[in-house]
Design a protein around this nucleic acid. Sequence first.
RNA 1: GGAGGAUUAGCUCAGCGGGAGAGCGCCUGCCUUACAAGCAGGAUGUCACAAGUUCAAUCCUUGUAUCCUCCACCA
Length: 883
Amino acid sequence: MISTELSKAYDPKDFEQRIYSQWVKEGAFHPDENGKEHFTVVMPPPNVTGILHMGHALNNVLQDIIVRYKRMKGFKTLWVPGTDHAGIATQNVVERQLAKEGLRRQDLGREKFIERTWTVKEKHHGIITSQLKKMGCSCDWDHERFTMDEGLSKAVREAFVTLYERGLIYKGQYLVNYCPKCGTALADDEVEYENMPGMLYDVRYPYEDGSGYITVATTRPETMFGDVAVAVHPDDERYKNIVGKLLCLPLTDRKIPVIADSFVEREFGTGMVKITPAHDPNDWECGRRHGLEAINLLNPDGTLNENVPEKYRGLDPVSARKLVVEDLQEQGYLVKQTPHAHDVGHCYRCHTVVEPYLSDQWFVSMKGMAEKALKALEDKDIVFYPKRWENTYIHWMENIRDWCISRQLWWGHRIPVWYCKDCGQMTVSRTDVTECPHCHSHNLEQDPDVLDTWFSSWLWPFSTLGWPEKTEDLKNFFPTDTLVSAYDIIFFWISRMIMASEEFTGKAPFRDIVITGLVRDKQGRKMSKSLGNGIDPIEVIDLYGADAMKFTLCYLAAQGQDVQIDMDSFKMGSRFANKIWNATRFLLMNAEGRNLVSIEPDKLTVIDKWIYTRLNRTIETIDRAMDSYRFNEAAQGVYSFFWNDFCDWYVEATKQRLFNGSDEEKDLVVSVMIDLLSQSMKLMHPFLSFVTEEIYQKLPGSEGLLISQQFPSVRPEFDFPAQEALVSQLQEAVRIVRSARSQLSIAPEKKFKVVIRPSENFTGTALFEEEKDLMSSFMGASQLIIDKSSSEDVSSAYPSTALGYEVFSFVREAIDVDAEIKKLESEIEKASKSLEGTMKKLSNPQFLQNAKSEAVAKEQGKKAEFEEKIRKSEEHIALLRKL
RNA sequence: GGAGGAUUAGCUCAGCGGGAGAGCGCCUGCCUUACAAGCAGGAUGUCACAAGUUCAAUCCUUGUAUCCUCCACCA
């Protein structure tokens, strides 16, 4: 005997937290030991600097959907959560905190600073994990990792030393991108270029022999103190004869030669370039080709150093530029200055202008790894969804440059290299070195730099599973299966993970790479802190519930397209969750006191058969969509099945049997509905995890947690394509009558006779006869006649045609057509009179000229309104006259 | 300079070779004993533009326009 119910209204706050605790308590997120194959997802680790934004929500919601789906499909599923120490970003946060107290990191010292950073990490880590839990993420918390925890630190050292041993890591003095504010080198892809207005200065460099001067164009005159040559194109006829001549460098007493190099664009500026190897990447290359010295002009803090004349020392480049230009002008060297917009590199973390900076840095040589990574794609070891990202990946890999991995920061993995102060030798080691292996001195110093954050995250898919140890986890869960990430970190992270994985494990780290779009606001702008246009996922959850957020994001997440949303967007998911709740509440109310009976296919009515077939089709849709990560299609599939098919048609069609049937009928109906509900909850669980779990546990006959149930599969014995087609015809007939009723504005309580006249070869006749009562009640008919013999007099009825049959609605029974027409005519007359008045005003030139513009607009609005009213009424009358 | 994406209803977007769709908004009528966060019905579209391929094009090809993103780079 069934006895269970749902509380009155849907309120996610009543159960979401409770359900999450229940899942955790019952170990539902751990891989199922009895599962068949393994299925692994590693979570892109959020930076421990901030809190999760809508992009994270989208990303994690999609992962959760995949993971729950696979888990219910019987896979031994593991979702590894974790966080990233985010070197520069986190250090910046702490330094900003210190700045508020009037302190710099140097005031604390390295150790104290790192200590303090850990507390910041702990705080944000706490927020992030609680956010993930609130969202409902079913990741295995026992497997949670942090990029700086012990195991991962070991992995980082292993990776560094192994690459060093393989000759793939080297140290040297090179020109790197340097952020003066962060005080560290950056990798090439950590620089963001932004088009900015600037000036192009033409400067005279006189010949040493006093025979005149040449003119060079530059945007950065302050770097002229680092000039070591002026270059022209070797084939440039204008300058052929001056190659080799010496020039006087203005504002200094240095002499520099004119050289020929084919990288010079003859058309740009004067066709002459000053060569400043220490402050421009092109010049650096050129300088190397010609064996020229590189004169570094900058201090680590970005100010000019002792290699510039005294009056400019200590200035930042911008002030120095101003002063240099003034001096050049004063001394007659400046020919002209013209506005010139150009791209300027900025630090991707603090947005300071980066400087090319000559310094000692560590690099990874990438070419060989890139080739392996390209091969992985070629061999289809990795597949991008959507496919177009493969081009981006290929292009990046083919044009890869060596990776600068050293950072002049304190927060991060210290480079595992020690220098002996006595013998000067360098030692690269997996373990801390306390004694120099070369001279046995204890006077050692570890390299002060730390590694780029991505040097730890590129190991993530296997370091989190225990690498370099040969752990069970690594054996069982690696390679992972699906990676879900936004496209903005394909280069930073995805590409490098593939390279690292190929290099260290010989395998691709994952098979499917699902690239999501970015979350934008309704103006299409990227959500960002500085714009303040972000939507906080927690606010969404507090307002609408986690299921509403998850379902909405999923519904909108079409194949890597960006999604534009605002707070109201989430109403969609909220309404759907509410609908599910209420449908269940209705069924449970009516199930009260009934008995569950077994469901035999041959006992089912045609409507039952129809809904079961719809269920099968929906299962197929979901499976197909999930196989190719088309989340929006899956979401649409469950939505239309549950709302349109199940609620709007099935439940409505069943009410008669439910209210008025025999006990036996009622038991069967209830049993079928509970079964359908149970199947639906399973089907929808990946997409609306909390509400389905809450409901499932209340369903009679359900056992255990929904999260651990088998995902529904197509049941052939409940598949009735013929009945499905017949019910579609029935629905069509019902729609026709409803439409006629609505067009003629006939109130629902007014019943009228309906005659359906099937053609001879119409397949639905038998069904229509069988389901006459049902159709009749759907149509609001007083009487429904299936007129096979065409004997009914339908001359006075409102006719409609469908494929295979005609429908005649005897609306005269419900309304007095003549009175109706009279009423409409008087309405037309009234409206016409009003229109006349309005037209009079509008055709009066004085009115148009003198009246307030609002008044004119109002009259014009009225005019349109009256015309519309007349048109509609006339249409309506025409319709009625046909009867 | 190179690559990619977008352009479909008022808004946000699905649809990837034969029927133009969803959610929101709008209009009409309904508090029908689950849900007004609802039910029923409805209006709104030269599917950016132009050519081409095809029996058939929103969908494929080529061009054009506008918007966006990424990569490279201009001294």
